[in-house]
Amino acid sequence: MSISTSVSGPGELRMRMVGRLVDAGVIEDGPVAEAMRAVPRHEFVPDAELRAAYRDEAVVTHRDPDGIALSSASAPGIVGAMLRQLDVRAGHRVLEIGAGTGYNAALLDTLVGPDGTVTTVDILPEAVREARARLDATGHTTVRVVLGDGEFGDAAGGPYDRIIVTAGAWDVPASWAAQLAPDGLLVVPLRMRGLTRSVALRRRGDRWVSEDSAECGFVPIQGAGAVAERNIMLGESSVLLRFDDDRQVRKAALDEALDRPAHTRWTGVRPPRGEATLDFWLMTLPGFCRVILMDAAFERGLPRALNAWGSMGAVQAGTFAYLTARGQGDARELGVCAVGADGAGLAEGVAERVRAWDAERDSRARIEVHPHGGAPENARWTIDKRHEQVSVILEP
């Protein structure tokens, strides 16, 4: 007796991918869903296995000599979420900062239709060549693909009704404001002390005011606006600490920390659900960073981090801490694991911050980008940037 197995074709895989995003509430069953059903993602990531092209995962396409990602095709979930934020309409003029594979530009081209225009800018010559070729091969021949530094946008194609940035941006440069039409919308993955949020911003006088935000992660922007992330690997590929600036860290002391017992403090607090503000409360901790645990960390006996990708945490001297959890369902409880010379002290310090957040856990974050010294009176936290300041306001 023979058993036959069927392999789903790209069309069926594409329909399933979109169906999952709609069912999860990431996108509505409307124009964005239709565009994602129409554009074959696998044509833009030809080196990826067919099923991988339609998973909700990023596909890295270019790396530097050290293996750090320079360009990628973002996961379909964040692509759809950002397009939902962007609210593109037929006939719009759209600027994309970061061409990547060209997939997002193809979606934008589908959304704006024959009466709209799409310009996409990338700083990597190889990305520009590949995006141009793939857009042409899939019928999106009118998209302008420009080699340039996204910090300066592309004035020749403006003014734009919409600008979307597909790389982690440290600042919101003046060129984007200058090239955006009145009442236009900017969607940008904004980096804030190690957090990245895709923020939908409108210009209001001398400032940008958010209308929506969503958690995300992106390759940092390159060129004149670059501020590199700093990655420190501890204990023979056990724990990766990622900082959003060039602060000084005593790596040798942290390597030694892994030889000490871990201290865990349970907080009595339920983990957040959906888009929560907990990370904003943690970002003011000295040494705030992202903590990513590798398989070797579990072999050392460390508890798993709160999320599969890791957790936000903190480093102080020769000690690091991160969030963990125990229990199931509504009985889950947040904890803090700290490893190092002052494990007990740092664990309790982070736990106190978690409990403080719990008292305002239902609040939502509104983000403003404004000139230095222009923070609103109700700003809870303000972050200095090169060109401006970013304020986070908590609202009921």
Rank of each mutant, 00 (worst) to 15 (best):
E360S: 07
A262H: 13
V350T: 05
T324L: 01
A214H: 05
A331E: 11
G217F: 06
W170E: 11
G329H: 04
R16M: 13
G148L: 07
G77I: 03
D183H: 10
A156F: 07
T142K: 06
P220Y: 03
F243H: 03
F44K: 09
D66N: 07
R193N: 06
A58D: 04
A276R: 03
H372G: 11
E236D: 15
W208I: 10
Y322P: 04
G168E: 08
A200S: 08
L108P: 07
A99M: 00
V339D: 02
Q389N: 14
V339S: 14
P76F: 02
G30T: 07
G67H: 04
R134C: 07
V199R: 00
R386H: 12
V118H: 01
A106C: 14
V145R: 03
A131C: 02
D212R: 15
V339I: 14
S72M: 04
R144K: 10
I164S: 03
G223M: 07
D255G: 10
A224D: 15
R134K: 14
P303A: 11
A262L: 00
G318Q: 08
E96P: 06
G184Y: 01
R250E: 08
R93N: 05
L201R: 06
D212L: 12
R386T: 04
A33M: 09
A35G: 11
V121D: 00
A262P: 08
V187N: 00
A321L: 06
